[in-house]
């Protein structure tokens, strides 16, 4: 899986993503500069976490104007796999590759902790290896991850099965107590209509080793590998 990890000024989970995909899964990885104009050699593009351009303005609002974002849009339109993690999810929304907005956490505080996610959609490229309803334990680390969309958008996402992950309790129940940031309907991750672009607030790259607390994040990267193999066949 030829993977490109986009590095904006202020990105910091680039190295963690590279560790997960490159060293743990052993797939070829390269960094993609924010000024790059072509992604032709890649099969998966990751927009990692961080504070692009400091995020002093609305998160991701400046990053979407980086030259690489045009290439990311082309890549996505041609069916390439795109995974936006945390700040990457925010950037994909700002770039209109995904709908909705991520508001300030309802607690008004940054939150870094392990949460549980229920896999709502196991047909998308990043969840092929999961069972529907499977619970994954993955950390979040954000101040602005409170998913919002207007009622019509939210309804269409639900109907089309584009809500990929929801925050849930350890047993899979979707409860208010399990919602770490106030997201509407506990939405933690969504996909585009075609299912090749997803954005998620939790950090799967932080959950790829038992030593660091869990391996559930591997399922997401492995799914992408399998999705690509399936396409190739």
């Amino acid at each position: 899986m030829r993977t490109g990890i986009v590095v904006f000024p202020g990105t910091w989970s680039d190295r963690d993503c590279s560790h997960a995909v490159g060293e743990i899964l052993g797939e070829p990885v390269r960094y993609v500069d924010h000024r790059a104009r072509t992604l032709d050699d890649l099969e998966l593009v990751i927009l990692p976490g961080g504070f692009s351009y400091g995020d002093y303005l609305r998160c991701g609002a400046i990053a979407r104007f980086a030259p690489v974002m045009e290439a990311v849009a082309d890549f996505a339109n041609r069916g390439g796999l795109v995974l936006g993690i945390c700040n990457g999810f925010q950037i994909l929304q700002e770039a209109r590759l995904l709908p909705g907005a991520l508001l300030r956490n309802a607690s008004c505080e940054f939150r870094c902790e392990w949460v549980h996610l229920r896999v709502e959609q196991s047909d998308c490229a990043f969840t092929l290896d999961c069972r529907p309803g499977q619970v994954l334990r993955i950390p979040i680390s954000h101040g602005e991850g409170n998913f919002f969309a207007d009622a019509a958008t939210l309804e269409s996402l639900e109907r089309a099965g584009r809500v990929v992950f929801r925050y849930c309790a350890a047993d899979g129940r979707v409860t208010a107590a399990a919602n770490p940031n106030g997201s509407l309907r506990n939405v933690a991750g969504i996909s585009n209509a075609r299912g090749n672009v997803i954005g998620m607030m939790p950090h799967p790259e932080r959950a790829c080793e038992a030593l660091l607390g869990g391996e559930d994040g591997l399922a997401i990267f492995r799914s992408a590998v399998h999705a690509l193999t399936r396409v190739a066949v």
Binding site: D16, A20, R111, C112, E113, S141, R206, E209, L211, L212
Partner: peptide, 12 residues
């Protein structure tokens, strides 16, 4: 929990 204590993937 208001501090990112995991970034860089080394925190055991």
């Amino acid at each position: 929990r208001t501090y990112d204590h995991q970034v860089q993937d080394n925190t055991v």
